[in-house]
């Protein structure tokens, strides 16, 4: 490797007193002293969340307001810090709009003290039911409070547009009978 010898220029007398530099520095800081502030006043002002931001993981509903999660537990499996815990359950046959889905989460807990916001759960979800959305501040007074349960996850997640309407199609096919 070539060595480039950079000659260090000897400082002039004025430079050796530091005074011009100090004056220059004071000038700079004085400018900033009166310059407009650049920070956000956080609770009132919120930063613009860019698309693709990975905030708190949430569960979303489909446009019909039905839960999309079928508790396949792939997110629980893939979650590196094991923050997700799902108790699967069967959807009873007496719910006409949802019974054909058969399976849904009985309980869905995400321990936000463990979550590392990696987004693998969103990536792995075959039903597009879990999303890391723009919620970025999670706080609580106890460990229990920091565990997001199913209702809270849906509350945070809301409803997202669904391009597939997979279960509606399934239902339609069932009602239509055999497709032959």
């Amino acid at each position: 490797m070539a060595v480039i010898t950079v000659e260090r220029k000897p400082l002039t007398f004025l430079e050796r007193t530091y005074l011009p530099q100090i004056a220059g520095g004071l000038k700079t800081t004085l400018k900033h002293l009166v310059a407009p502030k650049k920070t956000l006043e956080y609770p009132e002002q919120r930063p613009a969340i860019p698309t693709g931001y990975r905030g708190v993981p949430t569960l979303v509903m489909d446009p019909n307001g039905r839960e999309k999660c079928v508790s396949c537990q792939l997110c629980e499996f893939v979650c590196p810090p094991k923050a997700i815990r799902i108790t699967p359950g069967e959807i009873p046959a007496d719910q006409p709009d949802r019974a054909h889905v058969e399976k849904g989460p009985k309980a869905f807990d995400i321990d936000m003290l463990r979550c590392i916001y990696c987004g693998l759960c969103q990536e792995v979800c075959p039903e597009e039911a879990i999303f890391l959305q723009n919620q970025f501040s999670m706080s609580g007074y106890s460990r229990e409070e920091m565990v997001n349960h199913k209702d809270r996850l849906y509350e945070l997640g809301g409803t997202l547009p669904d391009a597939h309407f997979k279960w509606d199609k399934k239902k339609a096919a069932e009602e239509h009978g055999n497709a032959h």
């Binding site: 046959a93 054909h100 058969e102 096919a173 069932e174 055999n178």
Partner: peptide, 10 residues
């Protein structure tokens, strides 16, 4: 690409 067969479930 056709519709899948529907058979009894559960």
């Amino acid at each position: 690409i056709e519709d899948k067969n529907v058979k009894p479930k559960r």
